[in-house]
């Protein structure tokens, strides 16, 4: 299994505060990897560094896109990183509220299509073909996440759980080899969470995508993750299979804190 994403010694400082301290992580082809840790452990900051929203203070973020040359992506703009093949979702949902569900997904196709202003005005054969393909691909993705019936609705009219799934569909529309999900189950009820687990596994199996997800709820990721990394106070405190993590005393302490001692 080839490595897709390789993070080495990633460090991020905000002023005097070290939010992420020399964290390393690897995602291999076809894996579901989880990054967990209590609130404020630096998971989202780590994510933002990897996806280009922040420029990390130190360390390396290397991507090895299948069949392409390795690239160091520290400090590249988010849109460039997305174009290399890594797409993300947001913890606090960031859809385009006044666009339809279908259009939201179509935006994801932007970096994989090429129509320019002149092409759009002339609307020639190639433009039309591209547009058709964009619509069709987007619609298929909506089917995959179960939102096909709502294609014409405005995104801000969707229920919460559906908005989360729409974010996933939108990220998938950029044809990533690696999908980064930031707390995809936050705010969902147990039933929805269960469905989401199934969806993530299905995406991995059918879509030839690998997945890196952040969760702070540990139970949730145990079922679906191949490997788990654990962060606390900006540092990586453990890594391993779900079984290993479950039995790791450091993790138990970080997570359950006083409850264990009690």
């Amino acid at each position: 299994m080839s490595v897709l994403l390789e993070v080495k010694g990633l460090t991020m400082d905000f002023g005097g505060l070290r939010a992420v301290d020399s964290v390393g992580l690897e995602v291999r082809q076809g894996e579901i990897v989880a990054l967990i840790g209590p609130n404020g452990a630096g998971k989202t900051t780590f994510f933002n560094c990897v996806t280009g929203i922040y420029t990390p203070t130190g360390g390396d973020v290397l991507v090895h896109p299948p069949g392409k040359k390795t690239r160091r992506i520290n400090g590249l703009k988010p849109n460039v990183i997305t174009t290399t093949g890594m797409a993300r979702t947001f913890q606090n949902i960031r859809l385009f509220p006044n666009m339809t569900v279908l259009e939201n997904v179509m935006i994801g196709r932007h970096c994989r299509t090429t129509t320019n202003i002149i092409g759009a005005v002339l609307r020639g054969k190639r433009t039309r073909a591209q547009e058709r393909e964009t619509i069709e691909k987007s619609y298929r993705l909506l089917e995959k996440v179960g939102l096909a019936e709502l294609a014409g609705e405005f995104a801000n009219n969707l229920p919460y759980g559906a908005q989360r799934r729409l974010e996933i569909a939108r990220a998938m529309a950029t044809d990533p080899f690696l999908l980064l999900l930031d707390e995809p189950a936050a705010g969902m009820n147990p039933q929805e969470t269960h469905e989401l687990d199934a969806l993530i596994v299905r995406i991995r199996n059918e879509g030839n995508m690998s997945i890196l997800l952040i969760e702070h709820d540990m139970k949730l990721v145990m079922n679906i993750s191949d490997r788990i990394y654990v962060m606390e106070y900006g540092k990586e405190i453990a890594k391993g299979t779900p079984q290993e993590i479950r039995n790791n005393p450091k993790v138990i302490e970080a997570y359950l804190g006083e409850e264990v001692h009690a």
Binding site: I53, K77, T82, H110, R112, T174
Partner: peptide
């Protein structure tokens, strides 16, 4: 569509590769 996405949410817009 890219213009409208820009209007709606800049950060999501760049994260989608625009």
């Amino acid at each position: 569509r890219a213009w409208m996405a820009l209007r709606e949410d800049e950060i999501a817009c760049v994260a989608m590769g625009i």
